[in-house]
Amino acid sequence: MDVVRRVLLKGASATGVAAAALAAGLLRPQRVLAAQWDQNAFRAKSAADALKQLGAESAAQSKEVVLEAPQIAENGAVVPIEVSSNVPGTKSIAIVIDKNPFPLSAKFDFEEGALPYVKVNVKMGQTSEVRAIAEANGKYYVATREVKVTIGGCGG
């Protein structure tokens, strides 16, 4: 009797912990499989939802995140974005373009040996705020800039 009860309890508590951790968002699939594409975040259709999917909805504006982007982009198909983070322990940088159909453009995770820096060309459909979001020690820091687009770069 006792043995059966023990086994049952053990099983129940183990699955319970895993379920609770999943529910709390502690065991995000992309954390386990680093090289997995974060479908939920990339398919979010508003900047607010993208930030929520990234866990960054409470990101604080920070001067430690340096976002370089042109004030005016003549060609929305190629807008150079350069981001570096001076926040110690920065683990990732995400780029969100508020008014694009799918605002999250890219996200980079940095392991030891890489500096939290990235430069990438992105497409912008129209004039929009661009946000660079850095994650360090479970907290999120954001820098925002408006880029005016003369010719959009998403459609034909």
Binding site: A34, S105, D109, F110, A114, V118, V122
Partner: peptide
Amino acid sequence: TVKLNGKVVINGQTSQSVSRNPVFAFRLK
């Protein structure tokens, strides 16, 4: 994915809103 001496140092996720023929710059320490 960027590997330095066989070890992954950068994991990037990108979307359709990265420009055609993507160009990236990264920095390694």
